[in-house]
């Protein structure tokens, strides 16, 4: 499972970083999305990988912490997802505004001279 997860994070991050360097605004935004997926998975993995373990402990009595997943990274991921969702939406709006002003979807507002 570790290999699968780390490969997934790596591939997402690499594709995201590559797309981020591209000259079209749409590629940039897709790159940012992929990167944020990679980061979210990464945060999740920082709580150690467990299968089928609940994050909320039952009330009262002794509970074995080993049988439970770390709840904090899950809470962090939730916050990070919400924030990156909102900022991506904002970026989309700015992207459309810039497209409207410049008439091109190049990140610099003008095509590079050949």
């Amino acid at each position: 499972m570790e290999i699968v997860l780390s490969a997934a994070i790596g591939i997402l991050a690499a594709s995201g970083a590559w797309l981020l360097m591209r000259p079209r605004t749409f590629q940039v935004i897709v790159g940012l999305c992929l990167l944020s997926y990679a980061v979210n998975l990464f945060i999740f993995s920082m709580g150690r990988l467990t299968v089928g373990a609940p994050a909320i402990m039952p009330k009262g009595g002794f509970v074995n912490p080993d049988a439970f997943a770390d709840p904090i990274p899950q809470a962090l991921v939730l916050t990070a997802i919400v924030i990156s969702f909102a900022t991506t939406a904002l970026f989309l709006v700015v992207m459309i505004v810039a497209r409207g002003f410049s008439g091109t979807d190049h990140v610099d507002g003008q095509e590079r001279n050949p």
Binding site: I83, S84, V94, V97, A98, D108
Partner: peptide, 15 residues
Amino acid sequence: ARAGLHYIAVNLTAS
């Protein structure tokens, strides 16, 4: 709009 686009992209990556 153009400066804002760059600013947002840089800062999202930094975040």
